[in-house]
């Protein structure tokens, strides 16, 4: 069991199932929030404005700190040169929201390396590589996979802290804000639970000092907000009687994929279908746990849960198989 800092805990949640080689919009948003988590981590340790904190900040910005280099990759661009470091939390977070793509990528490399070193994160072939078209074309895409039990510990602890009555820790107050900003809420909370989370956030904003300062702030950039607003418009436009669906809310921030896996036989029974799917996933290095069997089995693949729905793709000949659809929350 490892004792993790805020930025590391959040990175384990935010980097899981993200493409490791490409900078997707979802990953860019996650990286910006991870950089904000570094600032919050410092804020939780010593505050940002007292003398000890200033000393620590100076050490971190010059790379003289014993703590991981991931802090340096965020703090140097923010506070490098002759800038005054004695600033408020909102100033630091505003600066984070303006970090360039190149700096975010450097930060990603350093934090991913530090987590990989401790066996908390690994690079595996992307789930999309199991899809009929990608598999047959030999395309290789990589993704991050977080350590399963550490991922579960972080997310379940946060769920318990948020959904239970009583006092919430500052760590959880920050994690909740980071999840909101990164669009990862749906990975952890069901739609019903999200109502409860909203109520909790509103009550925290009225009573908890850190939430009062933090929750009105945001770290997204203009373009990312524009994307979100376009998607909200799209959501209104595509709403049906059965609901709008999570994919219509933030498809661009969606990390789990709907993929098609072809089966060896035509019209196979549920058992044969499932064993073909498991064989394909395991051959690509994915960790699969069958949560329930039957006509539509539920599978946990690398920390995310999917439904394996029987499906056929029609070309010159019909190809039978299953479509893996993400099931929220975990």
């Amino acid at each position: 069991m490892t004792e993790l800092k805020l930025a590391e805990s959040f990175a384990i949640v935010a980097l899981n199932a993200q493409r490791s080689l490409e900078l997707t919009m979802a990953k860019k948003v996650a990286l910006r929030c991870m950089a904000a988590a570094v600032i919050l981590e410092l804020h939780l340790e010593d505050g940002l404005q007292n003398q000890t904190a200033q000393k620590r900040l100076k050490q971190d910005t010059t790379g003289g700190s014993a703590e991981g280099t991931y802090r340096t990759t965020v703090l140097v661009p923010l506070a490098g040169g002759k800038r005054k470091l004695n600033r408020e939390l909102s100033w630091w977070l505003h600066r984070v929201s303006r970090l360039s793509t190149g700096k975010l990528v450097r930060f990603e490399r350093s934090i991913a390396a530090s987590l990989e070193e401790r066996g908390l994160l690994e690079e595996i072939p992307h789930l999309l590589g199991c899809d009929l078209y990608f598999h047959s074309a030999g395309v290789s895409i990589k993704e991050y996979r977080s350590h399963a039990s550490e991922y579960a510990r972080i997310t379940e602890h946060l769920r318990a802290d948020v959904l239970e009555d009583g006092v919430m820790t500052d760590h959880s107050v920050c994690m909740l804000w980071l999840l909101r900003e990164s669009g990862c809420m749906h990975d952890l909370f069901s739609r019903n639970e999200l109502d409860q989370v909203t109520r909790k956030m509103v009550s925290l904003m009225q009573s908890q000092p850190l939430a009062k300062t933090l929750y009105p702030l945001w770290v997204r950039r203009g373009f990312e907000i524009a994307v979100k607003q376009i998607l909200q418009f799209k959501k209104r436009a595509v709403s049906t009687q059965t609901g709008s669906g999570v994919n219509f809310l933030f498809p661009i921030l969606e990390r789990s994929q709907a993929i098609f896996i072809d089966t060896e036989a035509m019209l196979p029974g549920p058992g044969a279908r499932l064993s073909d799917v498991l064989a394909r996933l395991e051959s690509k290095g994915h960790r699969v746990q069958v949560l329930s069997k039957g006509q539509v089995p539920i599978l946990k693949i690398d920390n995310l849960v999917y439904e394996a729905i029987p499906h056929a793709v029609y070309g010159r000949v019909p190809i039978h198989g299953v479509r893996l659809l993400p099931k929220h929350p975990v």
Partner: peptide, 18 residues
């Protein structure tokens, strides 16, 4: 310990413990 701390200690899901 709280229920959240129990999830950290045992690795069990929050909903299961609840």
């Amino acid at each position: 310990v709280s229920i959240g701390e129990l999830t950290r200690l045992t690795g069990a899901r929050y909903s299961t413990l609840k």
